[in-house]
Design a protein around this nucleic acid. Structure first.
Length: 538
RNA sequence: GGCCCCAUCGUCUAAUGGUUAGGACAUCGCCCUUUCACGGCGGUAAUCGGGGUUCGAAUCCCCGUGGGGUCACCA
């Protein structure tokens, strides 16, 4: 290893090498929003350069059921449209794409490192290293393993073995000089070798640790650009040491700014949901999701029903591209005003150069705004296709929906306009058209129905409604205005009461649309049934 | 604590060393309006501090301060 080694942020010009990036999640059972951002940037960069995006599963240390823990991650990426050229489910020329299945390669690399003197067998017991560590700490100096149980000769090894000590393998890190990497987003970063530990790369049982495995796999998969979160920046020296010791060319590195908590710079974590809920924007988005889950009768399992986890957005009915577009803006920008990009535009414009180096806090309200924008661009048919499954899940329509149900829902969608922000919102706007006896909000009754004069007004309107022909919004509006004028009142005085009588709520699409969709008979029936509630309370 | 990274409105961000420091979300006010939502108009709001370099610094350098990441036989 040269005392100074410069890693370039991109490949030399003229090298006709295809860009290959990877996302290497470990099977944790869920897809974290920060992980998605990393995957997205890798994907975008590969696509922009006409290269390949590889999905590798870093399951080196898993004791759990990998399939079960992997599925949500694969599903999440697919849902978001982040497709991989090689990896689980699609295979590829460098298979297998599971780290656990590459153990032989890792072991061979460890053996080579040992043979070339870049690593050594160590016979220290954990507590013996801990003692050194504590002593260094107490003395106020940086810890550096003494290597006193390192076997640099066969004689050493024989002696330690005679003591019955198990051995494992450590890196023999340089203790002079420094490593300089030219990070694509951070620029030049220098690390002194004397601060780097002799990391363990292979356990006594022969299994290899993450850093070795990762470097070997990246090389075997011909990864050219390692684009990952900033938390890995300090891992880079040991990985660069492993790679160069093995004779591998170094990949280019790009360390992405962390996705931080709302209103903070701390790394976003799914475990701190309770704390994030104190943030009003976060709470609003969460509560909205909770209401939708409740209407569908879905249990909002805190483990995945969490705005830090991608599943949340799928459950609630966000558009996958809205999430991609929002996440692309978290740490990256195109110019001073463009915020919305089609898939093609984004893959055309994306560059590593325009990635920001400082942490970016996750703002669920801004994501909401991006979602709003894309939702508004959908046609009624597109929304219908998107929303029907939510209604079916809530038991409000058959699965598949009958032609009649589809027609009704389509009308509701058209009448609802921009009110539907996420697919799950249809539940709140369509229910009273799909059930015979909609739930009545008591507060709405008190506010709009239980007042003097309301009953007579509703009765008069019923009479007018019975004669409206055709039963369409403009005519219904005219009839209502006539009743109101005859009574010497304002439109609002009747509209609100009719709305509550008919829908049970104070909010919804335009009233005339509601009545038209409901039809004459059902409208009259509901008004009739609401009349007893019009008696003033007390 | 060591090492490393970061620092423009509350948030995401823009600004070849020369701009009245721009946009978006959020927020506030007004308008539109049958509710809600949308929409329209307008407002509040930022270069962490101190030194340099320079005719000129958000921008380059240094020092502080603050925040963050990382220091496993986890990944």
């Amino acid at each position: 290893m040269p005392t100074r080694c410069v890693v370039y942020s991109d490949l030399p010009h003229g090298a006709p090498m295809t860009v290959r990036t990877r996302f290497a999640p470990s099977p944790t059972g869920y897809l974290h929003i920060g992980g998605v951002r990393t995957a997205l940037f890798n994907w975008l960069f590969a696509r922009q350069r006409g290269g390949q995006f590889i999905l590798r599963i870093d399951d080196t240390d898993v004791a759990r059921n990998v399939d079960e823990a992997l599925q949500p991650i694969l599903d999440g990426l697919r849902w978001l449209g982040i497709d991989w050229d090689e990896g689980p489910g699609v295979g590829g020329p460098h298979a297998p794409y599971f780290q656990s299945q590459r153990a032989d390669r890792h072991k061979a690399a460890a053996a080579r490192l040992l043979a070339t003197g870049h690593a050594y067998r160590d016979f220290a017991r954990p507590e013996e290293v801990d003692e050194e560590r504590k002593a260094a700490q107490a003395a106020g100096r940086p810890f550096l393993y003494s290597r006193r149980f390192a076997a640099f000769t066969d004689a050493d090894a024989a002696r330690f073995e005679a003591e019955g000590r198990p051995s494992f393998v450590r890196l023999k890190m340089p203790r002079e000089g420094s490593l300089v990497i030219d990070d694509a987003v951070r620029g030049r970063v220098e690390f002194a070798w004397e601060r780097e530990q002799d990391h363990v790369i292979q356990r006594a049982d022969g299994s290899c640790l993450y850093h070795l495995a990762s470097v070997v796999d990246d090389h075997d998969l011909a990864i050219t650009h390692v684009i990952r979160a900033e938390e890995h920046l300090s891992n880079t020296p040991r990985q660069a040491f492993i790679a160069t010791s093995l004779g591998y060319p170094l990949p280019a590195y790009a360390h992405l700014p962390l996705v931080a908590e709302p209103g903070s710079r701390t790394k976003l974590s799914k475990r701190k949901l309770a704390q994030y809920l104190k943030n009003n924007d976060f709470k609003q988005v969460m509560d909205h999701g909770l209401r939708i889950a409740e209407r569908m009768g879905v249990s909002a399992d805190a483990d995945t029903f969490n705005p830090v986890i991608v599943d949340f957005y799928r459950e609630v009915g966000y558009l996958p591209w809205a999430i991609d577009n929002y996440l692309a803006l978290l740490g990256w920008s195109y110019d001073d005003k463009t915020e919305f990009f089609s898939r093609e535009e984004l893959t055309r414009h994306f560059t590593l150069e325009r990635i920001n180096a400082s942490p970016a806090s996750f703002d669920p309200k801004k994501l909401w705004a991006v979602q709003d924008h894309y939702m508004a661009m959908l046609t009624a048919d597109e929304r219908l296709a998107m929303m029907l499954p939510f209604l079916a899940r809530a038991g409000l329509v058959a699965d598949p929906a009958t032609p009649g149900e589809r027609e009704t829902v389509r009308k509701v969608i058209e009448a609802s306009g921009d009110r539907l922000k996420v697919a799950g919102d249809i539940l709140a706007y369509a229910d009273f058209f799909l059930v015979d006896e909609p739930a009545i909000d008591p507060a709405a009754v008190k506010q709009r129905l239980a007042k003097p004069g309301v009953r007579a007004l509703l009765e008069a309107f019923s009479g007018a409604l019975a004669a409206v022909e055709p039963f369409e919004p403009p005519m219904i509006e005219a009839a209502l205005k006539q009743v109101v004028e005859a009574a010497g009142l304002k439109v609002g005085d009747l509209v609100h009461a009719v709305r509550v009588a008919v829908t049970g709520k104070t909010v919804g699409p335009g009233l005339y649309d509601c009545l038209a969709i409901l039809g004459r008979e059902r409208s009259l029936d509901r008004i009739r049934r609401a009349l007893p509630a019009c008696e003033p309370i007390g």
